[in-house]
Computed example of a mutant assay.
Amino acid sequence: MSSQTNNNKLAIKFRCPKELEGLLPQPIPANLGVPDWLKSMPTTAFSALNQQDDDTIKRCPPFIDAMTCGFLIPLICDLKVEDGEIVWDNDIPPGGEIDFPRSPISFHDQSQLTGSPLFEADRFVIKFHNLWTIEAPEGYALFFTHPVNRFDLPFTTLSGLVDCDRYRDSWIHFPAHWHDTSFRGVLPKGTPIAQCIPVKREGWAGQTSAFTEDEAQKVQALHAALKREPGMYRRKFRA
């Protein structure tokens, strides 16, 4: 089975049970899921320290590129959170050819986190259910993590790396730490619960050395150019 589209781009394949087609919110390219706060924030702001207008993170390519790479996996239905309880009303039809979770979340027992910084004796870790199987092209794994730079979300999804070129015929669910205990309200259907980023499996070796004289001159020249020309990385180095 090919993992390439007609225009020869590599493709991540998302599949769901046929009775859920059209009912589940679909995974989307991360560049289509930019949050409203990023869209509305200014590109420059006055710096009291520098006494001038400086660029905000909205004009920082590495910050934006991290947020817009890969795909976002959506929450399958609204979650209502109130007084320590999470409730939902999900329209998943009964029956079907295969068994799959009918609820949007379940829980990890806190004992699984014993010895980790996330352990709290009186709290569970939630697990978001994802009803899409996910297939990566041959030779690629997928790095699943919290939606990048989404500090506004009341939970933090734990990170994991899955060999989705091989493990492609079952569900991948996402454990998450609900850190905002004061949250009250609705976490809406479609909220990104995880970001998946393709990672090609390759062997890597680390090399360390001191600058040569020529390398030191190049570092100094680039450092000076970056000071002279705001936005230079975006214009000359960004792929």
Score class of each variant (00 low, 15 high):
165 D>Q: 08
108 H>I: 14
62 P>I: 04
162 V>K: 06
86 I>E: 00
9 K>W: 03
173 H>Y: 05
118 L>H: 15
7 N>S: 15
150 R>W: 09
37 W>Y: 14
119 F>Y: 15
76 I>M: 11
176 A>W: 02
3 S>G: 13
57 I>G: 01
9 K>R: 12
84 G>K: 08
176 A>E: 04
30 A>G: 03
61 P>D: 04
113 L>E: 06
196 C>A: 10
223 H>R: 13
224 A>F: 11
59 R>F: 01
215 E>G: 06
144 F>G: 00
51 Q>H: 06
6 N>C: 11
60 C>T: 06
214 D>W: 04
84 G>L: 09
194 A>M: 05
204 W>L: 14
59 R>S: 10
114 T>F: 11
76 I>Y: 01
41 M>A: 14
162 V>T: 06
210 A>K: 13
30 A>Y: 01
234 R>Q: 15
39 K>Q: 10
26 Q>D: 01
108 H>M: 14
42 P>T: 08
220 Q>I: 07
181 T>C: 09
113 L>T: 05
177 H>Y: 15
120 E>H: 15
139 G>V: 01
79 L>E: 01
49 L>R: 08
123 R>Q: 11
38 L>P: 00
167 Y>I: 09
158 L>M: 11
181 T>E: 15
135 E>T: 06
18 K>R: 14
227 K>P: 00
35 P>S: 04
49 L>T: 13
116 S>K: 07
125 V>Y: 03
153 L>F: 02
74 P>Q: 07
42 P>V: 03
182 S>D: 10
171 W>H: 08
208 T>I: 13
142 L>A: 01
202 E>M: 10
3 S>P: 00
133 T>R: 05
159 S>A: 15
26 Q>I: 07
11 A>Q: 08
117 P>N: 09
51 Q>I: 01
152 D>S: 06
198 P>H: 05
172 I>P: 02
30 A>M: 07
41 M>T: 11
146 H>A: 01
55 D>K: 00
189 K>E: 07
1 M>V: 11
173 H>C: 11
45 A>L: 07
54 D>C: 13
73 I>A: 00
232 M>E: 08
159 S>Y: 06
2 S>E: 09
57 I>K: 08
225 A>E: 13
16 C>L: 09
90 N>H: 10
23 L>F: 04
54 D>S: 10
161 L>P: 05
217 Q>K: 15
120 E>T: 12
217 Q>G: 09
122 D>N: 13
200 K>Q: 14
107 F>L: 12
34 V>F: 02
156 T>V: 08
102 R>M: 14
210 A>N: 12
236 K>L: 13
12 I>S: 00
109 D>T: 13
182 S>P: 00
223 H>N: 07
172 I>N: 05
156 T>S: 07
196 C>T: 05
67 M>R: 03
202 E>F: 04
184 R>H: 12
207 Q>H: 14
29 P>A: 08
212 T>A: 08
50 N>A: 14
21 E>V: 08
209 S>F: 13
47 S>R: 07
164 C>S: 12
16 C>M: 11
32 L>E: 14
232 M>K: 12
65 D>V: 03
137 P>L: 05
6 N>H: 11
20 L>H: 03
146 H>L: 04
214 D>E: 14
111 S>F: 14
205 A>I: 11
199 V>Q: 05
222 L>P: 01
130 N>D: 10
184 R>A: 08
31 N>S: 12
27 P>L: 03
148 V>A: 06
204 W>P: 03
83 D>A: 11
81 V>T: 05
167 Y>L: 10
